[in-house]
């Protein structure tokens, strides 16, 4: 949770500084959901994430260094600079990707659960979705399929109470989003998403059910995002009092207090931990800042397992014009169009 908060705080700052391009959606405030969920999973279980995916990545064990490099668009990022904040993935680590399409996680999780079930593997697949995504048709299709086939899937609804800038009650006629599970005849429950122990316990039970062959479960975790929908959001839709009320129940603070009360953590140890995490994130930023950008010709990599000539011709041309693949900073930052990679007509000789 600390790593996520530090990572996203830093990502927000670096975005504000203009170092990180594109969009960033921060997970600050919602840490207990991702961490609680992943704490209840085994290493080789799958998760399919959302556009607000940094927390899920870190909770699943991805390295902040390569995540930050991806946010910076570097070649050493998780996606070699092709994905950015909204598409960080590491399938081998069980992370099926952040996703820029609201509601895309559940079909992905159902698919992973289908593979698991088909090959009789001892895993589960979690599809994260936000409250807004509950209005998406594909979400219900995915839940229906998983439920009908008793697939080992878990759908975790992160109800942060706003779908983009619109409050949940203006987007759904159903108020308790876990009620939607009833339509699919699967268990649906609501837990306190600001309490990591609640989320972990619920997902743990859901995992046991999935592994027993009893099918999917929908877990709604009530939580709150402290930052805007994206960085730069003016937030006209809520007031400071509301934010403060949720911050009073902050997942990190409350868990810290409870651990200290239990004698399992001292305030000094917590401070050390926080410093350690901050150092790790600082190192990640430094790594990302100093990492090489991808060479232009890498734009043509990874379209297919088997690259067709249609793409190969551009790749070849780009490799030639970028000096044999050497990474050239100027070409990335330049607003001038790159030299033409054989795109114009005419017979090629």
């Amino acid at each position: 949770m600390l790593t996520i908060r530090a990572f996203d705080t830093e990502a927000g700052d670096r975005f504000a500084d203009g170092e990180i391009p594109g969009f960033v959606h921060l997970y600050i405030g919602e840490e207990a959901v991702g961490v609680g969920t992943c704490a209840a999973l085994e290493d080789d279980d799958y998760i399919a994430s959302t556009h607000r995916g940094h927390g899920h990545c870190i909770a699943k064990g991805l390295d902040p260094k390569y995540m930050m490099a991806e946010l910076y668009g570097r070649a050493e990022g998780y996606c070699n600079g092709k994905g950015g904040s909204m598409h960080i993935a590491d399938v081998d680590a069980g992370m099926l990707g952040a996703n820029g399409i609201v509601g895309a996680g559940p079909p992905m999780a159902t698919g992973a659960a289908l593979s698991i079930d088909y090959q009789d593997r001892d895993q589960v697949a979690v599809g994260f979705l936000g409250d807004g995504a509950v209005a998406q048709g594909q979400v219900h299709e995915a839940i229906n399929l998983a439920a009908t086939w008793d697939l080992p899937a878990i759908f975790v609804v992160e109800n942060n109470h706003y779908g983009e800038g619109t409050p949940v009650e203006k987007q759904h006629n159903v108020d308790n989003l876990s009620d939607t599970a009833q339509a699919h005849d699967i268990p649906g429950l609501t837990v306190d998403g600001m309490d990591i122990t609640a989320v972990a316990e619920a997902v743990g039970e859901a995992r046991a059910r999935a592994r027993a062959g009893d099918g999917p479960t929908l877990v709604e975790a009530e939580t709150y995002r402290y930052r805007g929908h994206y960085e730069g959001d003016e937030e006209p839709y809520r007031d400071d009092d509301e934010i403060e009320r949720w911050q009073d129940r902050d997942a990190i603070d409350s868990f810290k207090r409870r651990l200290i009360d239990r004698g399992e953590l001292t305030a000094e140890e917590f401070d050390d931990l926080e410093r350690e995490v901050e150092a790790e994130i600082e190192a990640a930023v430094e790594f990302a800042q100093n990492a090489d950008p991808p060479a232009p010709h890498e734009a043509y990599d990874d379209m297919f397992a088997e690259t067709p000539p249609e793409i190969e011709r551009f790749a070849t041309a780009a490799r030639t014009t970028t000096d044999g693949g050497e990474r050239i900073e100027e070409s990335r930052s330049s607003s001038e169009p790159r030299s033409d990679g054989g795109r114009s007509g005419g017979e090629r000789r």
């Binding site: 698919g111 289908l114 593979s115 594909q138 299709e141 399929l145």
Partner: peptide, 28 residues
């Protein structure tokens, strides 16, 4: 029935599931 699977009438659901399945080790 395991290898020739009838799906619900749910094109987004099964197309999405096939995508997720293909990414995780099977060949739908």
């Amino acid at each position: 029935a395991e290898r020739v699977r009838d799906t619900p009438i749910s094109e987004a659901g099964f197309m999405g599931a096939a995508t997720g399945a293909a990414a995780t080790g099977t060949r739908p």
